[in-house]
């Protein structure tokens, strides 16, 4: 369970998010809203990359600021541009880098890496330079390097914006199959339509919170 208690975020004299109170228990949650509505900040609050100016965010009771380390083990994060999430020259090295903090034995590391490569169809790319991958393959590798640590939650920050249709489909299929709780920040209303619960952000506030069809209708109305 993810809980926001009277959370606000300010940057200088600008209010990014104001007085958010939420409890998230659904399996698929989408967050939509215009550019600058605070979506990205909302996503980053969940794993402690951004600190609330007031209030607190907790994941399964753990405070995202005070217990950032434990929270990040439970929350995987997929960024918009996989090129910024892949930091090692080779595919295998990048996956191993994710496992470093877990301090597994080399045999266990190998086993996990083989399993994750197989489940995302990346086995043939194991010893390839990360740079040689296509956009879709890079996003799958970024997803693999988040899921490798077996988190219970996955936060996605506009994961398909930079992908073409075919790769978007490939990445979305991989995400749909996850058993984890997924919180997806997106501009893509098709993705939002499949969520169990949709939040609409406007000017740092929650303008709508409810079922997908109603939320999308409300969002379309706001845009006009």
């Amino acid at each position: 369970m993810i809980a926001f208690e009277t959370v606000s975020v300010t940057a200088g004299d600008r209010t990014v998010l104001a007085d958010i109170n939420l409890t998230l228990r659904e399996r698929r949650i989408a967050v939509i809203g215009a550019n600058g509505s605070g979506k990205s900040t909302f996503a980053r609050l969940i794993n402690g990359l951004r600190r609330p100016s007031t209030g607190a965010v907790t994941v399964d009771g753990l405070d995202t600021v005070k217990a950032a380390k434990e929270v990040r083990r439970q929350v995987g994060f997929l960024f918009q541009d996989p090129d910024n999430q892949i930091v090692m020259p080779l595919v295998e090295e990048d996956l191993r880098f994710s496992l470093k903090a877990l301090k597994l034995s080399p045999a266990d590391e190998d086993e996990r890496i083989e399993r994750i490569l197989d489940s995302y169809g990346l086995t043939h790319l194991r010893y390839q330079p990360s740079h040689s991958l296509s956009g879709g393959e890079k996003q799958l590798l970024a997803l693999a390097n988040s899921m490798l640590r077996e988190p219970r939650y996955l936060v996605l920050d506009e994961p398909t914006t930079l992908l073409d249709l075919k790769n978007r489909k490939r990445v979305m299929t991989a995400i749909e199959e996850l058993s984890q709780t997924v919180i997806c920040v997106t501009h893509d209303l098709e993705i939002a339509a499949t969520a169990d619960r949709v939040l609409v952000l406007a000017d740092g506030r929650i303008a709508f919170d409810g079922a997908a069809t109603d939320a999308i209708a409300a969002y379309r109305e706001m845009a006009e």
Binding site: R44, N47, L49, K69, R72, R73, G76, F77, F79, D81, N84, Q85, V87, F97, S98, K100, A101, N145, S146, R149
Partner: peptide, 16 residues
């Protein structure tokens, strides 16, 4: 800007 996003991504991966 890329540097900010890469540092965020490394921290999100829980790398100490």
């Amino acid at each position: 800007r890329r540097a900010e996003q890469i540092s965020d991504a490394i921290e999100a991966r829980g790398v100490d």
